[in-house]
Design a protein around this nucleic acid. Structure first.
Lengths: 222, 222
DNA sequence: CGACTCCTTGAGCAGCTTCAATCGATGTGG
DNA sequence: CCACATCGATTGAAGCTGCTCAAGGAGTCG
């Protein structure tokens, strides 16, 4: 079970779900496992993660899942294309989100700074997805897992002397579906990295990265 | 040599970003093989393809290439992240581009409709990249090549009775680098599809899709 | 404690890659 | 005009990586 880390996340006074009309940025609470939206849903909003981790995924005809992205605190996600969601989205851990408009001019009054914020976030998202493409297309299983751990540790990790501790909010299946692998292969890669002395595992979820530099070397080493 | 089709695209991706005749939209010509920009270059513009095909790619430390995307007529590409290009870009065939600003508010005066056009194109790009992720993560070589041919035929193909004829502007190596495969594997997939009677090959570049429906079935069949 | 879920490990197999040779189209020089 | 060189595409054979199927271990919760 995921023990939520309390460090570093933005604190908010408002713990309520209700949308207050006087506020520009209504927040939303999402319990673990709850679905925010489905692929194909109509939607004109985007979300910014205040706390928690979300999973964006698509399911294929044959029932296999591709995790398109994980959304960490600070990330903006949910960009609709032609007013439709292109992925499913659910919460891996209890999460809090800020809801923002993603309406285009012509649909009504849109503020320029809102639009710019949307554009900037979308551009950032494109950069992230290109990284993901590099991982999927050009890496071995070991390299993929190393790259994944490196990224996650930068987003969720806590310094622990030389090491970095991370409490993974997602299971092996999610990691596999993100990297285009099977859970068995991910598990073997974890074991491999552990036996190389690069990481250590408390539970399966709690990872210590003992040698971040070596991890990055493996991740880069296409 | 690639003979550019000047008419008869089966699909055009032109959004409602009509160029207004009163404004000066600078166009750019790019010869075959010429580089438009490199990864890491500073840039505040985006480009819309009027004619031709561009290749967006990134090179890894070990010299292998990942083709992130192909830009076909009607596509907008080149979104800078934090003012930097995230890929290399070069022309696979002689191309003509429309140059557009991608500056954000704060950098100067930016028109709302320009910004909205940028945002819309970026959102569209995200959708395309998600498709690419699905292809890279969850498909066999045969399925990847089928999905690729299906996409390209919709963008560049000319109807030919039941069949669709396509003149591929890219070589086997580019296709392989796009799909996360080796050229030999791509070649074998072409041969496979040919022997199944789904496609036929004039030269290696000129493909006829004899059974588009069967091709899509293979492409979907995760 | 026992049922459940998820992770790990093992063995065999399939698909993709690797290395190598051949073919075909194109271009060049004699 | 033909011989030859060149580059990309194709084909073959062998090896390796990741997948499949299967069993066992570890943590969780009733």
């Amino acid at each position: 079970m995921y023990a939520h880390t309390t460090h570093g996340f933005l604190a908010s006074r408002d713990q309520h779900t209700e949308i207050r009309p006087c506020r520009i940025e209504p927040t939303l609470r999402l319990e673990q496992g709850k679905i925010l939206y489905h692929q194909g849903d109509a939607g004109e909003t985007i979300y910014k993660v205040k706390e928690g981790v979300l999973r964006l995924s698509r399911v294929t005809v044959k029932g296999r899942q591709q995790v398109v992205a994980f959304a960490f605190p600070g990330d903006t996600f949910g960009f609709p294309v032609k007013g439709r969601r292109h992925t499913d989205c659910d919460a891996l851990v209890p999460s809090r989100l800020v809801v923002q408009s993603a309406r285009m001019p012509g649909d009504g009054s849109v503020r320029a700074d809102e639009l710019a914020s949307l554009a900037r976030a979308a551009l950032h998202e494109i950069g992230d997805m290109q990284e993901h493409l590099m991982i999927l297309g050009r890496k071995s299983s070991r390299e993929k897992v190393a790259a994944f751990l490196s990224t996650v540790s930068r987003r969720l990790g806590e310094a622990d002397g030389e090491a970095i501790r991370v409490d993974l909010p997602m299971g092996r299946t999610d990691i596999a579906d993100y990297l285009g692998l099977r859970t068995e292969t991910v598990s073997r890669a974890f074991t491999d990295l552990r036996q190389s002395g690069i990481i250590s595992l408390g539970t399966a979820q709690s990872v210590s990265i003992l040698d971040p530099e070596a991890l990055d070397d493996i991740a880069e080493g296409d």
